[in-house]
Every structure is written in C-alpha cells, then in structure tokens.
Design a protein around this nucleic acid. Sequence first.
DNA 1: ATAATTGGTATTTTCGAAAAATGGTCGCGG
DNA 2: CCGCGACCATTTTTCGAAAATACCAATTAT
Lengths: 238, 238
Amino acid sequence: METLVNIQVVKSRKEFGNTVAADVTHRLREEIITCRLKPSEALKFEPLRSSFGVSFTTLREALTSLVADGLVVMEGQRGFHVAPATLEDLIDVTNARVLIEIDVLRQSIAKGGDEWEIAVMSALHRLGKIEERMSGSPAEDPSWRSAHKEFHQSLVGACGSPTLLSIRDSLYDRSERYRSLSAAYRPVSRDKTGEHRALMLAAVSRDSDQAIALIEKHIRSTTDNVIRYAKDVLGPVK
Amino acid sequence: METLVNIQVVKSRKEFGNTVAADVTHRLREEIITCRLKPSEALKFEPLRSSFGVSFTTLREALTSLVADGLVVMEGQRGFHVAPATLEDLIDVTNARVLIEIDVLRQSIAKGGDEWEIAVMSALHRLGKIEERMSGSPAEDPSWRSAHKEFHQSLVGACGSPTLLSIRDSLYDRSERYRSLSAAYRPVSRDKTGEHRALMLAAVSRDSDQAIALIEKHIRSTTDNVIRYAKDVLGPVK
DNA sequence: ATAATTGGTATTTTCGAAAAATGGTCGCGG
DNA sequence: CCGCGACCATTTTTCGAAAATACCAATTAT
C-alpha cells in the first residue's frame, strides 16, 4: 500500500536532527586538522561556500564555532584564517594536554568499572586490527586516525568530568593538526603500538602512576617527533 | 570648517574593527552570567532579535559562539537554551577550575617579573577602592565584578600559556554564573577581602605553595557557599 | 478511552542579495 | 621622486524573506 523503496537513505550526511551548519563545522574541522587547509591560509568565503554547497551565513556560523576551538582565527573585519601553526603554540598545547590528560586518566582509572576496561581493550583491539592490515604511514589514514582517537578517548572515558573531556577533545584535535603537518616529512612511525599496549595494561591493572608516566611520555615524544620533522614548516606567529 | 560635534560617539558599542556579532556575543554572555537570562530558559529568536536590534543570522552566530563556551546549549532543530545550572555541573566546573588555576598560578609566580607584581598589586588596590565605597552585596555590582575578575586575571597573567588562560577564562565565567544565581539568596558576602590580600602577598613574595593552597581554598569555599544558598534553585540536568 | 494521524501554527534554519568595510591603484601635488 | 587622498574592485558582514522543521490540537480509527 505504500512505497517500499525506503526512506533511510535520503539525508546522506545531515544526520537526523542535526543542522547543516554543524555538518559543515565537522567537515571544515577535518580539512583543517588534516592540513588540506593549510595553517595561516585565508579562508575566503566564495570558494568555501561553493565547495561546501552552503550559503554565506551557514559557512560563517561554522567558522565561528571553529574559532572557539582554536583551529580558526578571526581578524577584525578582514575575514577568517586557519590558525597559524607555530612552535610556541605546539609547545603550549602540549603542556596543556599533559596537564589535563594526566588528571582525567587518573580519575578514569579510579572510577572506571568493568565496562570501561572492556571498552579500552576493544578500542585497542580495533586499533591493532587496522594497523595489521596497513602498510604505509598511518597518520594519513582516516580509519587509523579515528581508531587511534577512540582508543585514547576510551582510556579517559570514565573520568566523570564532561568539562575536562570536552577541553581534552579540543586539545587533542589541535595536536592532531601538528601531527598531520609533520606526516609528509616524517618517516614511517616508530613503535606506537607497544606504547598503546603498555598504556592499556597499566590502565586495566589500575596502575595510575605507571599509566600517567606512560601517557605523558607518549604525548611528549609525539610532540618531539613533530618538532624534529616539521620544524621548518612551523611559521612565526602571523 | 567642519562639524565640531564630533565623531567619537557614533559607534557606541561596536568598537573599531569589531563585528556586531562579536558585540552581541559579549552582551548575551553578560546577560547569561548575571542570570538575567535564566538557566534552562529557551532562547527564542524573535524576542532576542528585536531586543538586541540585530538579524536572525547575526544572533545565531552569537549563540553559536556561546555554545562553545558552555553557557548555551543547542538542541537539534529545537533551538537554543541557556545552559542548565545543575549541582553536578557546578562541581565539575569547580574541579576543572582548581586544576587549571593551580597550574597557571604556579607558572605565573615562577615567570612573573616586576611588571607582573605591579599589575597584581594595582588590581588589588582597584578592587579595594571599589569595595570601600560600596555598601550592598558586591556580586551584583558590575564594577566590582569587573575589578574582581581582573584581579584574578592579573594573578595568573604571567603564566605564559594562552591556551590555559583562555580555558581558565571560560571556566571563570561559568562559575560566575553560579555565583549570580546564589546572590539573591545569599547574605552579604563573607570576608573575601582578606583572602584576596593574602593571595596577593603570597604571589608577590613568590610563595607558590602558599598561593596555591589559598587559591584552591578560595575557589572551593566560594562554591560551597553557592551550594549552601542556591541548592534549591539548582535544577536537574534538563 | 486511547492511540495514531492529519492539518495548521509557531519557530528555527537556510538562503542569496544588499550594505559595509577593506585593500590597492592611479592621479595629483609637494 | 615620493607621499597623500580619493576612487574602484574585492571581500566580508549583515539583513529580512523563504524554506524546513517541530509543536500543538482536533479528529478519526482501533
């Protein structure tokens, strides 16, 4: 009595109940994090508008959110730019990340239950699977990046602080952009797999001190690596 | 030869080079922090639009920034609401604030130079002046609030981390809203003046440990006070 | 009586054009 | 030759109308 060819497919990207502004925000964020939109690049309206297929206003709303995220800067009435990538900013973000991450990790280990342990182990497992069937450099592969992000998220997911978690997310994205920046110049990644396994083990065995030491080392060594290989593309504060 | 009645006054609120969206953002933030826009209240477009004298789009841009600040929440296509004020959120924000504030204060004390010491002392002095010529409850007076904010900002101003400072600012505002919430019910404030003086002294004498202990106590006791007097107006997470 | 459907109204969301502002260029005067 | 100022083109910012969506109430079917 009705159309069988069903509905389900119509809204391809605009998930139910979400605005297109929010969607554009996500897509723009991805472009910036992966450095397809380069640091300090001017974000002109007309090109972006037509490339995303939205209006000025909607685009502007998306850009405004990203300003708050620290991925975009707005200057007076002279438009928007991708946030500059500078050595000082990378160091600043890294230090902030270490501070927050240590706190949420400690709390997550203290408060996490069985489901949390399982989530951490599953996330690591998924990450491992992806790494197995992958040859090239991982930082550029979207599914690796997604699994990597989710592993780290799972570690701190039980901390119980929505505020700190949202700050953590934002800082993670800002770091990720620097990783992308160095990806082109960097040789295939060193042994992160072992570090992830060690982190998981420390976490599920509730060894806070060990986990904290590992996460700090993990974060800082990543930054050191980025600095080593991307030093010359890190511009001055522009 | 020209009009003498001068120019200077024309753009009363839109400071040179700023957009009206940014201006509306600030004004809305103020309305929310002072609870003239109440927690969980629906932010309807038409009333706000006409009251601020701007268009839908501009208003929307302002609301979007405030979402990132945690003062406004957006739900699907059902518009914007002032962020609910809940006990859990207040506790969460307080803990996050303590974590960040301790770190930036420690660094500020370590790195601050002569100008920093002077800035801290001046800020305290200005705050004192305002408190002198003031009888009633301070939390409602805009100039006290501004001077108080600037004193605390001056303390951490030399920390050298723009990232942490901007997070700190946002958390400060979120706390401030809870203070406003309790202001109506709370008796005239207890002795903050002494606490501020002690903080200043610990800071300029470079006694990190003491300063940190004081700031944590300062923040937590403020929160305890808010909870005591505003417990019944703190809604469930809606 | 309750649940589901339909239609109408209120609100939000998106659009593209009008207005404001910026940056650069060309001509004029020192 | 160089600096200054006014015009023009480009780009951003703002607006109000149009489209999409949710909300509410009444009506019908189970």
